[in-house]
């Protein structure tokens, strides 16, 4: 059986919103070579989002399209993980200005890619053949993203006192948001029951192993599992998503009948 549309949207929204965040570095990266590398990650994620939205739109029929789904849904209709919508810097209220921090970007991508490398690998065996095909191409990308961010995490942890402190601060800031990974949304339960998708909690131990090893190699400390349990997958987001979407959607919504 096929995965429910909400499940596809959860995956697509997460990929798109993270691409949007990562793309903020394009032209502003710490060094030219890395600027290109991060742009590649954004492009991979936009590609994943497009395949998923196109598939979801085909299932919805009518006037649904990848761009209708991306540009004409509000924050409370988005189903992305809260982790990916947070700004590229430490904790601030919505709209507060703050210089971007590469450690936040790298740690976020690392925590997320560690999840996606596992999830896409499992989804290759989904009974939803189209989703399985998307997973088969995405898993390679996720593994590369994990390697990219893992390499940086090691360099930050082992590098200078400043880079170590920044990486640890980013880890402390972002860690609580990973708890959302393991709490199933209704869409995930449905995908698990009917489309051969893994139960989120079943990925937890493997994720722990992978993440713990990288954190230890980087001589960083794993933060305790505590803090607020966010619910982006349920459509309850941080203050930041609405700003991100307002910017992303502004041209498309100003010209609702336009084709680009």
């Amino acid at each position: 059986m096929n995965a429910p549309t909400d499940y596809l949207l959860q995956l697509a929204d997460t990929a798109l919103v993270l691409a949007q965040r990562n793309a903020e570095w394009c032209g502003h990266g710490p060094v030219l070579e890395e600027d290109l590398a991060m742009a590649n990650i954004s492009l991979d994620l936009i590609g994943q989002a497009r395949y998923l939205y196109q598939y979801a739109a085909a299932g919805l029929g009518g006037d649904a399209s990848e761009d209708r789904l991306a540009y004409f849904r509000d924050a409370n209709e988005y189903r992305c993980l809260t982790l990916v919508e947070l700004p590229n810097h430490g904790p601030r209220s919505g709209g507060a200005a703050c210089a971007p921090d590469y450690a936040t970007t790298i740690v976020r991508n690392f925590l997320h890619a560690a999840l996606m490398a596992l999830l896409w690998a499992e989804l290759q065996h989904s009974s939803d053949t189209q989703l399985a095909a998307i997973a088969a191409r995405s898993v390679k990308e996720a593994r590369y993203h994990l390697r990219h961010c893992g390499d940086w995490l090691l360099r930050f942890g082992d590098g200078t006192a400043e880079s170590h402190a920044r990486a640890q601060a980013a880890l402390d800031h972002l860690w609580p948001y990973t708890q959302e990974f393991w709490t199933p949304s209704p869409a995930e339960l449905a995908a698990c029951a009917h489309a051969g998708a893994p139960h989120p909690a079943s990925l937890h131990a493997a994720w722990d192993n992978r993440v713990d090893a990288a954190i230890a190699a980087a001589t960083l400390q794993r933060p305790p599992n505590c803090g607020f349990l966010c619910r982006g997958k349920f459509g309850q987001h941080s203050e930041h998503l609405s700003y991100l979407l307002a910017e992303m959607q502004v041209v498309a919504r100003a010209h609702p009948d336009a084709v680009w």
């Binding site: 070579e33 890395e34 290109l36 590398a37 590649n40 390697r147 990219h148 390499d151 360099r155």
Partner: peptide, 9 residues
């Protein structure tokens, strides 16, 4: 790192 960046560049 050179190897990884060469892939992206």
């Amino acid at each position: 790192q050179a190897l990884r960046l060469a892939r992206d560049v």
